[in-house]
Amino acid sequence: MSERKNFWDKNAGRYDRFMRKDRAAYDEMYELIRPEVKAKTVLELATGTGLIAKNIVNAAAHIEATDASPEMIAEAKRDNRSAKLHFSVRDMFRLPYADKSFDVVIVSNALHIIPQPEKALAEIRRVLKNDGVLIAPTFTHGNSTLRGRLKLFFMKLVGFPLNSRWSSADYLAFLRQNGWTVRKSAVLKASFPLTYAECVKPAV
């Protein structure tokens, strides 16, 4: 985890500026997420600076928003004005929450940057209620244009940790292979194709 944390800690202060180019895609994503979290208890993993959590918290009952990077969480806390939103530093592979604690788990743009994402999905399954929903939007770099591939090349040069270069179809297949039922998906236009996936918890 330390290598990833160092990259994200180092870039926490400029993360929001970097993400502005994808504001339209994120606005579309918020509209998809809000109805699914209405009056629900939500866990967000890899929240970064809290962009998603802050934009959907008014719809939710409560959000626990977590990230492995202390610097990202420090940025997130800086302008948090909601009593329903709590930020903390957590390791998504070893969460401190009880089994079946949350109605919804959100993990956005993270599964492609971590090793062994199937282990993260197993931990998500543990803390999610039996009728719970996983919302897992992810940049799918395998769908990139030539310009996108060049951009990704330079991102990797500066240390961006890309572990899975899925196409949209490959990513949805990966979720299904790990037992999740994908009940809704869409590809949003962003700097890289952003595959929105909404999943039902696998039956035990």
Results as ranks from 00 to 15, higher is better:
residue 61 A to Q: 12
residue 147 R to D: 15
residue 197 A to I: 04
residue 111 L to N: 06
residue 136 A to S: 15
residue 189 K to I: 02
residue 24 A to W: 07
residue 197 A to N: 05
residue 151 K to A: 07
residue 96 P to E: 06
residue 71 E to C: 03
residue 5 K to A: 07
residue 190 A to E: 03
residue 144 S to E: 02
residue 134 L to P: 03
residue 184 K to A: 14
residue 200 V to E: 15
residue 194 L to I: 03
residue 55 N to M: 09
residue 138 T to C: 00
residue 26 Y to K: 14
residue 25 A to L: 02
residue 63 I to D: 01
residue 98 A to R: 15
residue 38 K to I: 09
residue 17 R to P: 00
residue 175 L to G: 02
residue 139 F to T: 09
residue 33 I to S: 05
residue 182 V to Y: 06
residue 96 P to Q: 06
residue 175 L to W: 04
residue 68 A to E: 03
residue 191 S to Y: 06
residue 29 M to R: 05
residue 32 L to F: 10
residue 18 F to G: 07
residue 137 P to V: 01
residue 120 A to H: 15
residue 103 D to Y: 09
residue 156 K to P: 08
residue 177 Q to W: 04
residue 78 R to A: 10
residue 97 Y to R: 13
residue 71 E to N: 10
residue 172 L to Q: 08
residue 142 G to I: 14
residue 15 Y to Q: 02
residue 73 I to P: 11
residue 144 S to A: 14
residue 148 G to R: 07
residue 166 W to G: 00
residue 51 L to G: 11
residue 17 R to V: 07
residue 84 K to S: 06
residue 175 L to S: 00
residue 88 S to F: 11
residue 25 A to Y: 01
residue 174 F to K: 04
residue 91 D to S: 11
residue 174 F to N: 04
residue 141 H to T: 05
residue 32 L to C: 11
residue 87 F to E: 04
residue 16 D to A: 04
residue 13 G to L: 02
residue 1 M to I: 12
residue 69 S to M: 01
residue 10 K to A: 12
residue 44 E to Q: 10
residue 115 P to S: 07
residue 177 Q to E: 15
residue 159 G to N: 04
residue 73 I to H: 12
residue 5 K to N: 06
residue 51 L to C: 04
residue 85 L to S: 05
residue 119 K to Q: 11
residue 189 K to L: 11
residue 66 T to L: 11
residue 127 V to G: 14
residue 175 L to H: 02
residue 11 N to C: 03
residue 202 P to M: 15
residue 151 K to N: 08
residue 168 S to C: 00
residue 191 S to N: 11
residue 107 V to H: 10
residue 104 V to P: 08
residue 115 P to F: 01
residue 107 V to W: 02
residue 195 T to E: 02
residue 89 V to G: 13
residue 146 L to V: 12
residue 187 V to T: 14
residue 120 A to P: 09
residue 105 V to F: 08
residue 76 A to F: 07
residue 64 E to A: 13
residue 31 E to F: 00
residue 169 A to G: 09
residue 40 K to S: 10
residue 60 A to R: 05
residue 22 D to N: 01
residue 38 K to H: 15
residue 26 Y to V: 09
residue 145 T to R: 00
residue 76 A to S: 10
residue 172 L to N: 02
residue 166 W to Y: 04
